[in-house]
Every structure is written in structure tokens, then in C-alpha cells.
């Protein structure tokens, strides 16, 4: 499954970043610590349709748009 399908406050693990994501998006993910094997959890969803979402990765908060979240493959723990 991908990150956009994850329910609020459900712990999960990043499997990989989809190959279809652009280089810029992949780079930003890696720079902000969203790399495979890291635990991830959705903490907040923005008003108006829950886009973007705020996720916790290694105790830091990152805001991610729904389109970008579709590029992150995860599995629930």
C-alpha cells in the first residue's frame, strides 16, 4: 500500500519510494529522512480533504502532499 492510504496514527514502515516519482521529489524525501526501513506515522491531516498530511519520521515532522504520498510504498506494522 502507499502512504496516502494509511490511516491517521497507524504505525507503518517505508518499503521504498516509487520509481515513478521525479528525481526532485525523491531527493527531497531522502533529504528529509524518508528512506526505506524507517518507521512512519500520519499525525495530522490538513483541513479541506486532508491534503497535505503531516507524518512523523524518526521523531521529526514532515508535511507531504497527497500526490507525493502516493509515491511512498509502506506496510503497516
Amino acid at each position: 500500500m502507499t502512504l496516502n492510504d494509511l490511516k491517521l496514527k497507524t504505525p507503518a514502515k517505508i518499503i521504498k519510494i516509487s520509481d515513478s516519482a521525479t528525481q526532485d521529489v525523491i531527493q527531497r524525501f531522502y533529504e528529509l529522512g524518508l528512506i526505506p526501513m524507517q518507521n512512519i506515522e500520519i499525525i495530522h491531516k490538513a483541513p479541506m480533504g486532508g491534503d497535505p498530511i503531516a507524518v512523523r519520521v524518526s521523531n521529526n515532522l514532515v508535511g507531504i502532499g497527497i500526490q507525493e504520498a502516493k509515491q511512498i510504498q509502506i506496510e503497516t506494522l
Partner: peptide
């Protein structure tokens, strides 16, 4: 297209 949103939300 809509620009990607990937931003650190600092403490």
C-alpha cells in the same frame, strides 16, 4: 501541475 508539497515542519 500542482507543485509538490514536501516540507519540514520544524519543532
Amino acid at each position: 501541475a500542482k507543485a509538490p508539497f514536501i516540507h519540514e515542519l520544524p519543532t
